[in-house]
Write a protein that binds this DNA or RNA. Sequence first.
DNA 1: ATTTCAACCGAAAACGGTTTCGTAAAATTT
DNA 2: AAATTTTACGAAACCGTTTTCGGTTGAAAT
Lengths: 339, 339
Amino acid sequence: MSKVSLTKISEILGMSKSTVSKALNNYADVSPGTRKKVQDLANELNYKPNIFAQNLRSQESKIIGLLMPEIVHYFFSTIISGVAETAEKYGYSVIVAQTKDDYKNEIKQLELLLDKNVDGILLSLADDTIHFNHVKDVINQGVPFVLFDRTSKLIDCNKVVIDDVKAAQMATQHLIDIGCKKIAIIRNQLKSQGTIDRHKGFKKALLENGMVYDKSIDFEGRDFSFSAGKIAGNKICESHKDVDGIFALTDLMAIGALEALKEHNVAVPDQVSVIGFSNWFLTQITTPHLSTVDQPGFEIGKAAFNLLYQEIQNKKNNVKEASKTIVIPTTVISRDSTK
Amino acid sequence: MSKVSLTKISEILGMSKSTVSKALNNYADVSPGTRKKVQDLANELNYKPNIFAQNLRSQESKIIGLLMPEIVHYFFSTIISGVAETAEKYGYSVIVAQTKDDYKNEIKQLELLLDKNVDGILLSLADDTIHFNHVKDVINQGVPFVLFDRTSKLIDCNKVVIDDVKAAQMATQHLIDIGCKKIAIIRNQLKSQGTIDRHKGFKKALLENGMVYDKSIDFEGRDFSFSAGKIAGNKICESHKDVDGIFALTDLMAIGALEALKEHNVAVPDQVSVIGFSNWFLTQITTPHLSTVDQPGFEIGKAAFNLLYQEIQNKKNNVKEASKTIVIPTTVISRDSTK
DNA sequence: ATTTCAACCGAAAACGGTTTCGTAAAATTT
DNA sequence: AAATTTTACGAAACCGTTTTCGGTTGAAAT
């Protein structure tokens, strides 16, 4: 409990704290004898340098901030995991915070992170964020900063994303490949870039395969939820019996549709194939197990930290680099809901 | 970008940094005139006190560490959320780390948190942690410390838990109340305290209702997984057709059992009722929706932080308090898998 | 006119390290 | 033996705050 400091050690040994510091940090200008004396005593007293003092001197905390829409969310929790594990390798710790998809809160949480003097910030934008001054301010202050997943073209900075267009296209292509002739899409309002791009990818796949995009089986839910998926599923069962494939923009919507199909005694995948998006854990335990597109959160988190780390190094070395965007590849995972 | 410090402000205004500091911190011995001058300039220059210097002075970081077995885990993610939201109210941030249920890693992560000089630590023990010296060391160092969920009687400190015995008893009682006469239990090895207690609660409910505990329908899986639950479910369908109720110690096992029942065309809940444990999100979207016991992670996290905060205050004020254990109430949630 | 007492401000220590620079002693070269 | 270099150490500045403790004013009280 009795905090042992550099000064204390120097007093015990009767030398200056400069020498003690140098002995512990393996400076060349300290004799082997004194070095050993210092290190032995330091070990004996279980000396740990006071990190607050080190922070003050170096002006860095070795802590980064990770801010995202939700913590209780499979995808984002895999991102936390990826960021934390990667950060640890470089001696960094991660402060985690959530915006609850609220613009005002995003501003506040960003402020809180800056107040802690984190060495850098990783952010996934809130859904209703349409002004970006708070983000640009952070960047202009010179704080290393990386956007991931929910990004914006209006912000010039390093980013980590997936190719939603391509991913959605691949998912749709998968349905086509297994023989689906009439494919419905279940989605949210075309607000966020991700939704827009997935929708685009869906239509692209249809086009490239000479199929027509039919607006009447393009279902727009009020959100990304299970119940929104179920409502759409019900409509399909009731009014569009010729649909033999469903692409839902989220796993949750897909599972909602699955339940609707079950209740209408529509066999999956025999009568209708269903594919979701994200590869949440729960897709492995539905009946039938849900085909989906893997959106690798761990990899995204890992890449985001690595980019941020680069920025931190660049800042130290006073080098400027142009912003880049890393695209993490996605893969279609075929399970029992498509065949 | 040009960092504006107290000293800089004092130089511009031609006064001492003591006065500037006092003006900003509303000390009494500074005249209204100078106070205004200082505050105006501080606002104009967008002055933010350097938190590293403050940390060094106060020897506190306003950051706590949250260490738990897994991050990608519904229950634990709700705990992160509860801790983070509560901590924010008191100006604290939360560093999140995971042990991956590994004893060695637990030691390492604990060390890393201490190295960051966090003001306190919240820990949920790894499954294979059976020696507690690393934990006791932390406590003996005087670091505010609270155990939650996975705790140990061998560690004397503040704790936040649920009453597993009672919760399991209530779950079993629910099955009994709806008319189940032969209730199987699906569980893991009786290793962790949680498992032991839930098993105890199960037997207690049977006893209190004059029912016999039948060892042949007590299924021990190799872990808490979906597949372990499914294996048990299969055995029930094949060799114990008289079973009309299943209590699984985790939701995942319950859902595995559900799948097995489905594949054997056993109707849930008409022929067999199933109840799980934890109220993971996915219980709301299975078919049928799974009855379960709510294990309120958010509340647990909230209570854990509040306890830790008390400890931090007590440490500042040099008061010692006896350790206490807070028990967060659980409730049975009846859905479609029991009736 | 002297004492008393607020009111206001600043010097300096403290928090605990790191790092630059100067210098004395020892070792080496002329 | 003198000049030069190397080795080993310490003084002191610095990072940016907070806070104690005096001290200097001016106004009020005697």
